[in-house]
């Protein structure tokens, strides 16, 4: 089973992350302090560690250094309220694989975790398989029922994001932020998301005959394994 370690001092945030991630098939170990984290590190071989840099009793960067020494194959994602370029560079230089600024969407965290695990655990070719669809995250190509599915780069990313968070409601805002970053904020992005989603659904439906993607009234979209 894929085991994750979540190091975050704020209990509400920790619990929310676990609530979202566990139904996705992960085992989540949690730590609220630096010392708890130190103890937890030796207990399992983690696929990915999510670490908050600001801990009440120690520095998250130290944990990253220790993980790099002892668990080379473990992916590390920093979650931090600090959003300057220097903070990011420091986190990544210390050995983190990704840096996520708080507040973030759980769907985004989930996507980052899966991406980091893919990169650190499975070297070489690895595919994401969903129903009759095979997606290659590296080559950004998709094959559906044995046929190439022609998708634009953004359509591919959008589909990948939905599949990563399958069976969950993903808001238009979360999709927009995932694809365009937060510089899209303040624009009419819901219209843009809608247009892309419409094209994506059309392309999928043309090959499968059914609409895999459900519109959730007023809030977002969901891709499901059964329909």
């Amino acid at each position: 089973m894929i085991t994750l370690l979540i190091i975050e001092d704020e209990r509400s945030l920790r619990e929310s992350m676990v609530s979202y991630l566990e139904p996705g098939g992960y085992r989540c170990i949690t730590a609220g302090t630096y010392h708890e984290a130190m103890k937890a590190i030796d207990r399992y071989d983690y696929y990915c560690v999510v670490v908050d840099l600001n801990l009440p009793d120690g520095d998250g960067l130290k944990i990253i250094r220790l993980l790099k020494e002892n668990q080379a194959k473990c992916g590390i994602i920093v979650i931090s309220a600090r959003d300057t370029l220097n903070d990011r560079i420091l986190g990544l230089q210390t050995g983190a694989d990704d840096y996520l600024v708080k507040p973030f969407d759980l769907s985004e965290l989930n996507a980052r975790i899966q991406s980091v695990i893919r990169r650190t655990r499975y070297t070489g070719q690895n595919y994401v398989i969903f129903r009759e669809l095979i997606m290659d995250p590296e080559g950004k190509t998709a094959v559906l029922n044995g046929e190439q599915l022609e998708l634009t780069r953004k359509e591919f990313d959008m589909l990948m994001y939905l599949i990563t968070n399958k069976n969950r409601v993903i808001t238009k805002d979360a999709i927009a932020e995932h694809i365009w970053g937060d510089s899209i904020y303040g624009t009419d992005y819901t219209e843009v998301v809608y247009t892309h989603m419409k094209n994506l659904r059309k392309k999928l439906q043309a090959k499968t005959g059914i609409d895999w993607i459900q519109t959730v009234y007023g809030s977002g979209y969901r891709i499901t394994e059964e329909s």
Binding site: S12, L13, K102, P103, F104, D105, R168, V169
Partner: peptide, 19 residues
Amino acid sequence: HEIQTPLAVIRLKSELLMQ
């Protein structure tokens, strides 16, 4: 800085609630 944590909690909880 302090506002960020409760904001993050609201965001995550509403996302969970939606599920």
